[in-house]
Design a binder for these strands. Structure first.
Lengths: 343, 343
DNA sequence: CTGTTAGCGCATTCAC
DNA sequence: GTGAATGCGCTAACAG
């Protein structure tokens, strides 16, 4: 393990907190009323251009910067939105977060990021902490119960990603389309029995994928066995390899790429050749080109989901109304190196 | 490309924003003054236990929850801290962010996450937007100039990760130790000429790594050539493979694992066998077990850096003083499958 | 167009 | 131990 930390130099210095210049000081300096200063910043068109300029100049000179908190208290709007994800370390989320952030930025909103560690209690706690500091919330792949989600939705504007609750705006990544392609792909390669390595039981995506695989498998007259991996992680995947192999299948579809990667590692450790004797397909397509062999995976655009969710939320905030929208983003199979004809 | 999005159900509903219960309503209900309600929540020991209980009961019944913004305006503290990173999609950062979040959570602080896209202008903008909403800031692998950083540090409590500015508290991951081990490892394998695939020019880590490699190489009497990759990304790494090969070296150390991964892919495309004819070492050790062959890498504990930075910042906030501390976290080499004796 | 007034919801002096 | 004022910094009517 890496270790050893040393510190040096301990000279303490008192913090010189820049005691904020207030609107009144600017008002005095510019020889106007406080409200005019306020207007100069929020509705300049209500003032004479020359007045605005004078105020702005005075403000600049004093180093005035509007106090966000005071403004928030007065207006009830603070321009923050919360984004909660189960596991920031899962490569599925960063692109989504990034896109969300970009979209929020376009409207001058700041994002609070919350990480729940896949833990519903932690998620509940975060929502509580965020509420009151944010104007709205995006819950991504929430692990909360329907009831808790509805409870929160009644408190503040809420948008869901990968959770399908009627009445609450939601963006869904429909694995169905990609899953069908994946199963068909395996069928054409001659596989007769496959395994689905499932994900978190309270995950909508997991339920959806499992159902889609079940349907597709039966329509192609393939046998299907479900092996639960519980958490979507590398180690979960590696841990269930024995269960997968003992199922007697020749191919597997995993809940997500990270799990698939764990499975891939486990197979390799047991000298099972991929794709020669076993085929593997992931989901999310977040590290397709990264593994060896390149992972065949079901691709989506998680970033689009993030962008859309924020966009939806911002719309709700500006309209002060909630549309019961349900966006569905489709997926498709990307074939790489982990699938081949059944041995 | 994935595509196709459809929306359905457009029934609009007005938002029923839960008009916050205020302290006054609770005061009335409990038959006390507003100040007592305030005290019941912030300094219960100043009140009779029975009074506190009565107030809390009334609050509970009304569903009162303290208004964070109002409290912040009054006290000047809002319990938020900002965390800014260059690229959340780079696997180096998520563990750091996660640890930071955990540490902040322990003290009931919320984290604003900012992503700069490796862009100093964006970074500056984010700092500006955050200032005023956060009590302090952590800049991770900042791409800003020393001057800008000092300017910001004079405005609000600031902690740096992987940036060494005297007078500003900082947490540094010292690649030096690991780099020396890496170069020695290559020397022992018989490599005589190596390449350093560099990272962002305004990155402290990059400068530090380059310098350490230079020193180590000369002490082992190895030739060194630096090939710039500009951005730490998979594609940057892949793009510089030709330059690496034409340098005539037999081994390379990359700025980070992601870059190394790109190099690995590029080498594979050019049918250069790793490690048989070319050895490769990454930095950060964030995806060692993920690539094939497993990437030999210089390991650190980025999560520890995140935790420490937050802890330092919180200490500054509670002391209202700034210690000129400089924490150094050491690193070490982890040998996996991408290094072997020089062909 | 601009100044005056009155809160936003809470924490915090003081008195009692 | 508790209540009554005052102010945090700003925005939003309402006048003029």
């Amino acid at each position: 393990m890496v270790s050893g930390s040393r510190a040096s130099e301990f000279q303490d210095t008192m913090i010189k907190r820049a005691k904020g210049v207030t609107i009144s000081q600017v008002a005095d300096a510019a020889g106007v009323a406080r409200s005019s200063v306020s207007r100069a910043f929020t509705r300049p068109d209500m003032l004479l251009p020359e007045t605005v300029e004078r105020i702005l100049k005075a403000a600049e000179a004093l180093g005035y910067v509007p106090n966000h908190t005071a403004r928030a208290l007065s207006t009830g709007r603070h321009g923050n939105i919360g984004l909660i994800v189960p596991d920031i370390a899962n490569p599925f989320f960063p692109p989504l977060i990034q896109a969300a952030q970009l979209e929020a930025d376009r409207s001058d909103f700041c994002i609070f990021l919350g990480n729940t560690e896949e833990n519903p209690k932690q998620e509940d706690k975060l929502v509580g902490r965020f509420a009151g500091q944010v104007e709205g919330l995006v819950l991504t792949s929430s692990r909360l119960s329907d009831e808790r989600i509805r409870a929160h939705a009644s408190q503040l504007p809420l948008v869901l990603i990968n959770r399908d609750l009627e009445g609450i705006p939601r963006v869904l990544i429909d694995s169905g389309s990609g899953v069908r392609q994946a199963v068909e792909h395996l069928a054409q390669l001659g596989h007769r029995k496959i395994v689905y390595v499932s994900g978190p039981s309270n995950s909508w995506s997991n339920k959806q994928r499992r159902a889609a695989i079940r349907t597709a498998a039966s329509s192609f007259r393939m046998e299907l066995e479900v092996v639960p991996a519980v958490l979507p992680s590398y180690s979960s995947g590696r841990n269930v390899v024995d269960a997968i192999l003992s199922a007697g299948a020749t191919a597997a579809i995993a809940f997500d790429d990270v799990t698939a990667q764990g499975v891939l590692a486990g197979l390799s450790e047991r000298k099972v050749a991929v794709p020669a004797t076993f085929s593997l397909i992931g989901c999310d397509d977040v590290l397709g080109a990264v593994t060896y062999p390149g992972l065949t995976s079901i691709s989506n655009r998680s970033n689009e989901a993030g962008r859309l969710a924020i966009s939806l939320l911002l719309e709700m905030l500006s309209n002060r109304s909630i549309r019961d929208v349900r966006y569905v983003l489709e997926t498709h199979l990307v074939v790489r190196g982990t699938t081949a004809a059944a041995g």
